[in-house]
Design a protein around this nucleic acid. Structure first.
Lengths: 126, 126
DNA sequence: CGACTGATTCGACAGTCGTCTAGACAGGGA
DNA sequence: TCCCTGTCTAGACGACTGTCGAATCAGTCG
């Protein structure tokens, strides 16, 4: 919990995220980004994030997830949420009995920006 | 005309790519996307992809990579290139002695689109 | 307080991943 | 032809990951 990776101060400053096509990633930056991509590299986590971001209000109660159609047990859901949290992609907050999660949109945006590629070139060169 | 298709191969499987914030991912789609994200979840692979996409002409010769500043042996580079290739993120071609790789930009674009999020909200909520 | 529900942590186990060395395959030039 | 260089495959091994059941922590309500 004390160990979250926070790249969003960079995002707020816009020194943030040139597409990988524009400049070679340095090792340190690549490591941070890879940590986030790795967190997305599991179907369950991807669907969890989708659930969270597409929920009304942009947040969701864990009680609406656990025991769902993910075909895994509660602790496993909890584990995946923790991975997403430690990667800096979501943020959790306890409100009374329930825990709510929401996406850290700045970091999602940073990943998307990293993958930005000139579309027209894509057409030509492909 | 220059803007539409883009997702060529992926498009043949299904309609391309609504952001995860707009609709919950179904299991099958999530599995496909997760496979690509997982391939990006390693610093070396991320830097390899960066090298490839940022190279002049959009492609790079393996001979310019192996034994580089990645601090791993040749076979390990080869392994990572294979992972990227099997994930559909890059494409390799042998031309005489050397092998050249280039990015499959359509799939990179698909990933970026999946992560698209309303930016203004991102800044506010961060 | 004490019991109950929701969510996380702990410990274990099978499976996957990243890396290496050794060896195989492909193409070019003496 | 034989060898040389470039790239990939095979096999092995330690480390990490995803999953579970059991135990624990956090809040709420009798």
């Amino acid at each position: 919990m004390s160990k979250q990776l926070v790249v969003l101060d960079a995002a707020s400053e816009q020194a943030c995220c040139p597409p990988i096509a524009e400049a070679s990633l340095d090792t340190e930056h690549a490591t941070d980004m890879a940590r986030m991509f790795k967190a997305l590299g599991d179907p369950i986590r991807l669907r969890l994030l989708s659930r969270i971001t597409s929920a009304p209000g942009g947040e969701i109660c864990v009680c609406d997830i656990t025991g769902d159609d993910f075909n895994v047990t509660g602790p496993t859901i909890s584990h995946h949420l923790k991975v997403l949290r430690e990667a800096g992609l979501i943020d959790g907050e306890r409100r009374g009995t329930w825990v709510y999660y929401r996406a850290v949109k700045a970091n999602m945006h940073q990943l998307a920006a990293l993958l930005a590629i000139d579309e027209s070139v894509a057409l030509v060169s492909a």
